[in-house]
Computed example of a mutant assay.
Amino acid sequence: MAMLNWPQEEAPQPAVDEHVRVTALSKRYPGQQVDALHQVTLQIERGTIFGIIGRSGAGKSSLIRCLNRLEEPTAGSVVIDGVDIGSLTESELVNWRRSSGMIFQHFNLLSAKTVRENIELPMRVAGVPKAQRRQKADELLALVGLTEKATAWPAQLSGGQKQRVGIARALVHDPRLLLCDEATSALDPETTRSVLALLREINRQKGITIVLITHEMAVIHDLCHQVAVLDKGEVVEQGPVWQVYGDPQHETTRQLLNPGRETVALPGRLTAQPLSGQSRPLISLGYSGGGALPQLAKLSALLGDELTLVESTLEWIQGRQIGRLVLLGKTDSSPFRVEKIPAQLADRVEVLGYVTAN
């Protein structure tokens, strides 16, 4: 099997406006012999939507709860806006938490209070005057599209509406950081899309840094700017979403994101070498956001009139072409040379084998 990886030029990196820095963070629960989190290091830029993905038990919930000290780390540090939150006293931590909000998976609404009263509750606890609470709650109800539900009870709401109330409640203190703990996992796909659109709009309007954990690939794809992959409590890969999707380096990432690397099933026989002029090369063209574009007219000119499209998993992520094309080239008795495909037409070229018709 022949493969060609085209070299990538490193783009200059702009100065980073750091919002959250996690350094060598570890967490071991009492009675356990293995760390739930081990030496986790992350840097999160201000105003970004940062996703943390992993299988169940990977340590996602432990990590996000360490970001506001709902869990106490065993070792390491979390610095947010220049403040090491591990150094805060209990009273200082209560005040600091008002600069962050958290959205939970199961909504946690009080059934005996109306929608508006649920949103007002954190402000009431903080001693905000009634008129100010009412005004803020109504502003947030408008933001999340629930103005007409202000006096409804939680039992009268759909799952998506309950989560919108949870989002509004998390925003009452105008947080600079919003943490989302599997915020869409209890919702159906259509409702999930609407909640993700709301979070994206909140990020755009208010510039709030959003950190979310999920096991859903579509959430990372549709919402996030950056992603970290957790496996057994460790960060195994991180970077811009387009980069991690386009060229995953770790096996866990490949299994989670599944970026079009399935075995191609074809009628006929796949061989490692061409068989006496009766074989067509099966060619995989990979696109990892490096700038190459699948220009079919030029590929046809290079690969011949017999060119056949077998599979396409191409999509645009953050303005970059990601995925692959699998093509059958023309019948030939000679092995296909991957260097025939120039760098502007594919980031990676691989010959999967040769197909001989029955």
Rank of each mutant, 00 (worst) to 15 (best):
M1V: 07
M3Q: 15
L4W: 00
E9Q: 14
H19F: 12
V20W: 00
R21H: 08
A36Q: 00
L37H: 03
E45G: 04
A58H: 00
S62M: 09
N68T: 10
R69F: 15
E71Y: 13
E72V: 15
P73M: 10
T74K: 10
V78W: 02
V79M: 08
D84R: 04
G86F: 04
T89M: 05
E92V: 03
E92Y: 02
N95M: 07
M102L: 10
I103K: 02
H106Q: 13
R116L: 13
E120Q: 08
L121C: 08
P122N: 13
M123V: 09
G127H: 06
A131N: 14
Q135W: 04
V144C: 13
K149D: 11
Q161W: 04
D174W: 09
D174H: 14
R176N: 10
D181T: 00
L187P: 00
T191G: 11
L196R: 06
N203Q: 09
N203W: 02
V211F: 04
M217D: 09
M217T: 12
L223M: 05
A228D: 04
A228W: 02
K232I: 07
E234Q: 14
P240E: 05
V241Y: 01
W242G: 03
E251K: 07
T252I: 10
T253A: 11
N258V: 04
T263I: 14
A265Q: 15
L266N: 03
R269M: 13
L270Q: 08
G277P: 08
R280V: 09
P281I: 02
L285Q: 03
G290E: 03
G290N: 12
P294S: 09
D305F: 13
L307W: 07
E311S: 15
I317V: 15
G323P: 00
D332Q: 15
K340Y: 05
L345I: 06
R348S: 10
A357L: 13
N358P: 15
